[in-house]
């Protein structure tokens, strides 16, 4: 591989790592801020990706044996281009809206009862979404998938160098979301979420409507995941229900947050890069290390180990790392972890 090839590879790697970082940020809103246990990230991933893809793709072509009925074809309406391909942002917004809506419906049913129900429900959402796109060929071409998803600003740059443009797009979206999540975390709203995570009973006693705050957090995180799904769709430009298997669309993201540290946004982004780096790097290793089953096993072991040793994640919550230095003997956990 020549230098150019290496750089091309690294750019492709960075795009995926940043898309994953968006999901990790969303998951951080759920788990890191609020303690909501979403094990159906794949559901929001798929919903976001399919929403953006369906809205922007051209209508089905019977000659290509495409069975689905709807292609929004937004990308081909000049009205929505304005020279900056504005349809792209419409697609992202719609992806976020659809994910937010589903989160709102399921969250409002389950969150008033018991947090555990939410986590089981997320599992149900993910499976139902997958089954829907697999079986309902009219919706998105079933298992044959969608493969004519348009490029954002695809006319500006030759196809073989397109990644160099898209990496900037993803970077900008990631930065915007990062700042948004960071500001949300530091706002009074974010402080209430932390308080809920630390001690729900006391927070409720202080007059906060705990389940409302949880619902807002669930919807907010799901919308971020929707954005991530949309960016993914326009990056790989091929979607099928098989794309969203739990391993690559849920568990890897959990590993990223665990490594990065829950509650720590910068850690979430770093975790995405580290885990995706290990993941992508090990596929060149010989033998068992590149075996997907072995990686699955390792992700499981990693999550359990982190729960046992450092439930706050490898990097930990930023605030706590800073706070730990002046008070080293805060308890057994602190001394054991340092």
């Amino acid at each position: 591989m020549d230098i150019g090839g290496v750089i091309d590879y690294l750019v492709g790697f960075a795009i995926m790592a940043m898309i994953y970082a968006i999901f990790t940020l969303g998951l951080n809103v759920h788990w890191g801020f609020t303690g909501l246990f979403n094990i159906g990230i794949a559901g929001f991933f798929a919903l976001g990706a399919y929403t953006a893809a369906l809205l922007t793709s051209p209508p089905p072509d019977p000659e290509q044996f495409e069975d689905f009925v709807f292609g929004g074809n937004l990308a081909h309406h000049d009205v929505l281009a304005w020279g900056i391909d504005a349809w792209f942002f419409l697609g992202i917004a719609a992806a976020a809206a659809v994910c937010g809506l589903v989160a709102l419906i399921i969250g409002s049913i389950t969150l008033r009862l018991n947090d555990d129900y939410l986590s089981i429900a997320t599992l149900g959402i993910a499976e139902s979404v997958r089954l829907f796109f697999l079986n309902e060929k009219w919706a998105a071409n079933g298992s044959k998938g969608l493969y004519r998803i348009p490029k954002f600003l695809g006319d500006l740059i030759p196809a073989e160098n397109y990644d160099y443009l898209y990496i900037v797009v993803v970077l900008i979206v990631l930065l915007i979301l990062f700042v948004a999540v960071q500001r949300a975390a530091r706002s009074p709203w974010g402080r209430v979420l932390r308080a809920i995570r630390e001690d729900e009973v006391t927070t409720a006693a202080s007059g906060k409507n705990v389940s409302h705050f949880k619902l807002q957090s669930f919807v907010f995180g799901a919308m971020i995941m929707g954005v991530g799904g949309a960016l993914f769709a326009h990056h790989v430009r091929f979607l099928s229900p098989l794309t969203f298997d739990p391993l690559l669309a849920t568990f890897v993201i959990w590993a990223m947050l665990m490594v990065g540290g829950s509650g720590n946004n910068l850690g979430a982004v770093l975790g995405a890069f580290v885990v995706w780096g290990v993941w992508a790097g090990t596929q060149f290793l010989p033998g068992v290390f590149s075996d997907p089953s072995f990686r699955l096993l390792m992700i499981g072991v990693l999550i359990v180990t982190i729960m046992l040793l450092r439930p706050g994640g490898l990097l930990g919550e930023w605030r706590r790392i800073v706070a730990r230095r002046p008070a080293p003997a805060a308890g057994r956990d602190a001394t054991g972890a340092d």
Partner: peptide
């Protein structure tokens, strides 16, 4: 939540082991 998270890790690890 931490207990359930750990059980998710166990679930993933067992499945990896079975596949392996």
């Amino acid at each position: 939540a931490i207990l359930m998270m750990a059980s998710l890790g166990v679930a993933i690890a067992i499945r990896g082991l079975v596949q392996l």
